[in-house]
Design a binder for these strands. Structure first.
Lengths: 194, 194
DNA sequence: AGGAAAAATTGAAGTAGTTCAAGCAATTTG
DNA sequence: CAAATTGCTTGAACTACTTCAATTTTTCCT
């Protein structure tokens, strides 16, 4: 099993559209490797999200802070997932989110200008980003349905069933806010106190 | 002002990527015009969503039904918007949603196989669908943030501010479920009984 | 390893929003 | 136009979940 970060990303990209060796080279050369320490921020409100981030190793979370200073987790990302402030990145406008590392992590960053260039240069690259966007949209639609139709307990159970291994890597308070409930209530669900 | 449905769609597509006359022709020829009567369904659970639908005239809504038989509105679409069961369409799997007309409507339908062919045939077409998917994802992320961080009253106010003209075209019960509250509670918000 | 900080747990009190039920208004359809 | 259906309103009772506060457990850091 290969542990070279670029080789891992290459496999990921190849699964979306088959690339020649040269194409792979072109694409991968635009990504830069970055180590992120636990609690370090890679995106902060008011700054434009310059990068789309592929997680090679580790775990990160994106959250917004409401007027009461409460964190609300919008997204998690572990190995083989992507994370950014999507609205900020796509439209290159100031972010509203924080993105921070839950664990020491290793990520591959693609900057917006390079992405733009890649999309324009090669139909296959465009296809890769199109597929990524479609899957993001489909995923989020499922999440919206879950938020609208399920109880707190059901939302937790669904998450636990779908991502059993991710579960124990996430601080409870961050999972609670991701699932739209308080950390106390999630604790009670987990310990059958409801 | 041109009222030819295909001309309207053409303007919409051109705003995403400039197309030659011939390219327009190729793309538009794949859409078929369909009239939908109020209350008529264009997508139903268990059947695969065969089409992506562009609204030329009218209004439609997508909803799921939970185990108690309650409607939960997932999406609205009026003029110049798109609607489908996104998960069903993208993955060509059985739908979980109903999509139905709120008003007598006129839509342009693109079937999945044609879309696939168009994406493969021309880089520009791929770009158009990539942009659509990106915007869908960005829109849905904003909606998730709103659901997690705002009160029922704030969610209603945000919607009313952003879509003042759409507001009076939607049945209240459907807007209530879109915003994640009961129709009674939305009624009270509107009449300042909270 | 040990002290400090962060996170999780628990119960009690509170509340944002739901459910129910009944009446009223508006719209649709024959 | 009348009758029926559908949608909206209102208040009262309820509940799923939050907030608060105190304690315990776990993790972090040198």
């Amino acid at each position: 099993m290969n542990t070279d970060p670029y080789a891992i990303l290459q496999t990921h990209l190849q699964s979306r559209a088959p690339l020649t060796t040269e194409e792979c080279e072109t694409m991968l050369s635009r990504f830069r490797l970055k180590k992120v320490k636990r609690k370090q921020f890679i995106i902060q409100p008011e700054y434009v999200a310059k990068y789309r981030n592929y997680v090679v190793q580790g775990a990160l979370r994106a959250y917004v802070t409401d007027e009461n200073g409460i964190d609300n987790t919008i997204q998690f990302a572990v190995e083989d997932w992507w994370i950014t402030d999507y609205n900020s990145y796509i439209y290159q406008q100031p972010a509203t989110m924080f993105v921070t590392a839950i664990e020491d992590s290793l990520i591959l960053q693609l900057d917006f200008e390079s992405e733009k260039m890649l999309k324009a240069a090669n139909h296959k690259f465009e296809t890769i980003f199109r597929i990524m966007a479609e899957r993001t949209a489909a995923f989020q639609q499922r999440r919206i349905i879950s938020a609208l139709t399920r109880t707190a307990k059901e939302r937790y159970q669904d998450f636990a069933d779908r991502y059993p291994l991710v579960l124990n890597r996430l601080p409870q308070y961050s999972l609670a806010s991701y699932l739209g409930m308080s950390t106390e209530f999630l604790s009670k669900i987990r310990n059958n106190k409801v």
